[in-house]
């Protein structure tokens, strides 16, 4: 797709202005281009995976204006003037950092294909519910499929991340109390 000049075949193309992972982007896109293809093919951000391409598996979960969304069910033209964050953009976000460490610690990925989507969904959960119980975690992740079936460790990792974030908060609190 990126090998084809934008004006070739003179298909209906729109100038898309959007911000992806903090960087302003301007590209010509066909209205039918999915956000998942825009990220992967146009911007070469291949961290967003496409599993089922019809909204069932959750691999392509990204953030649109800070809320999780399926990139395979969103047209690129729908993120005009919006902010998109993909797994590459989580960077130094403290919740994402805790989740990455916990996924490593708890062996929460096997083949890793579903991991970007799980990280996005888990980050959304922990940003809204800092100390979820196991049931809450399972419900929040119910839209993501791990084809390796490694759910036990994924749930454990999210719980572990929540605990380590809580410990960090307590420590912070202790420090400010001591002052």
């Amino acid at each position: 797709m990126t090998d084809t000049p934008p004006d070739a075949n003179a298909a209906d193309r729109r100038l898309l202005r959007t911000t992806v992972n903090g960087i302003a982007r301007q590209e010509l896109v066909e209205p039918r281009m999915l956000l998942s293809d825009f990220l992967r093919r146009t911007l070469h951000l291949t961290g967003t995976h496409v599993g089922c391409a019809h909204g069932v598996c959750g691999c392509c979960t990204v953030l649109v204006d800070g809320a999780t969304a399926r990139a395979c069910l969103t047209f690129a033209v729908q993120v005009q003037d919006r902010e998109v964050q993909s797994v590459e953009g989580l960077g130094e976000d403290p919740i994402a950092a805790a989740l990455r460490a916990s996924f490593h610690e708890c062996h929460a990925l096997q083949c890793g294909y579903c991991t970007p989507g799980f990280l996005m969904a888990a980050r959304q959960l922990l940003s809204e519910t800092p100390e979820p119980d196991e049931e809450t975690i399972r419900v929040a992740l119910s839209g993501n499929i791990c084809r390796c079936t490694g759910y036990v460790n994924i749930v454990r990792a999210v719980r572990h991340a929540a605990d380590s974030l809580a410990a960090a908060r307590d420590q912070q609190q202790g420090l400010s109390d001591a002052r």
């Binding site: 909204g55 959750g58 649109v64 969304a69 399926r70 959304q124 959960l125 839209g143």
Partner: peptide, 9 residues
Amino acid sequence: NGHPATRHR
């Protein structure tokens, strides 16, 4: 109705 990611949209 669906998952958080689909309910957001």
